[in-house]
Design a protein around this nucleic acid. Sequence first.
DNA 1: TAATATACGGAGGTAGCCTCCGTTTTGCAA
DNA 2: TTGCAAAACGGAGGCTACCTCCGTATATTA
Lengths: 202, 202
Amino acid sequence: MSGADQIDVKRKPTPRVRKPRADSARNRQLLIDAAKAAFAEVGLNVSLEEIARRAGVGIGTLYRHFPTREAVVEAVYRREVEQLAEAVPQLLETWPAGEALHKWMHLFIDYIATKRLIAPSLGAAVARKSTLHTTSVELITGAISTLVGRAIASGAVRKDIDPSDLLRAMVGVSYGNPDAGWQASARRLIDILMDGLRRKSR
Amino acid sequence: MSGADQIDVKRKPTPRVRKPRADSARNRQLLIDAAKAAFAEVGLNVSLEEIARRAGVGIGTLYRHFPTREAVVEAVYRREVEQLAEAVPQLLETWPAGEALHKWMHLFIDYIATKRLIAPSLGAAVARKSTLHTTSVELITGAISTLVGRAIASGAVRKDIDPSDLLRAMVGVSYGNPDAGWQASARRLIDILMDGLRRKSR
DNA sequence: TAATATACGGAGGTAGCCTCCGTTTTGCAA
DNA sequence: TTGCAAAACGGAGGCTACCTCCGTATATTA
């Protein structure tokens, strides 16, 4: 390699030497937009190649930005998930803790409803203990944990609830057939679950 | 509409002219065995080609017997599912209807536990309104419907329960991370759900 | 403007899916 | 038995998607 290394005048501990390239950022955005559209139109199984094509970039570029298919989905739905998480404080201000939890669970269904596709990948992400980074899953987990914690503290629900259990149930409840009725069904289950939660101990 | 049939000396309404070929039946069995082993060892994503190889048959043969990957899984787990369905009458004899339902739900978890792989494909099958034939899903649906019906009739649980809702919840509850704790988590949720079910109306 | 870190693109190797059709096997009738 | 047609087999091959690799292009910085 280059012998000049020995001098090493300016070693940067933070290699944040340059600012990120503009084209990179732009392409990333193009990819996310294209992916969103493609997922909606074609389904969760669109080939990554098609997404790249729609975005007008090469497949290599897609892979550089998102090493896995999951990463693409993650990027697409992060925003929605953030909104779900952001709803928590407001709910807690406005309602008693038990109600806040309940309402949030319904909100969850609404979101899943609009972006149906999120469920499978959320499920998958819950399945593998996903990455170390802050994934959408963690955002959600945080949200529901807060709500459950409050609800328990206020005595509105039983104490032996593991928030991630609950998340899993909700994913499960909204995972399933694309019938017209699925949403109603999910709501019914949420309500039943909530009734179960309210039984203090048993 | 069968008035003309009288002439018709030997019309076979059942074209069961020949008995099914022996090699066909044998290969089918070989395939199912191979698939079972392969799923267990490699995972649900084994290539169908590998399954055929293990069974010692050509890929074409596999496809002739099972047109889709789902069909393979279906065949493999039908037996387990049948056992689940068969447990119903006995449970109903031995326990009050509410308890029977509750116990069966736990049994479900047990089964899923031993054959973890069934969950994803059950989920998938519930998702697409699967085939017209009697699938495993329908067996399960029948089982849970019976239990729920009895439980409702006996007044043990609320009336507004859709059995397939419940099935979906159970699949969801057992769908998810392969952690050691998943099973306990699933059981907790089942119990909570059951508590919810017991609230008559609200 | 030159130098260089950064990003791009897409060809190409790999693998799984599924179909199609020539060959083989099996059941049945004579 | 034997002959033959129906039934089943096998696997080559076409297709599509995945993902990597590296020569080329471009944005930044000095």
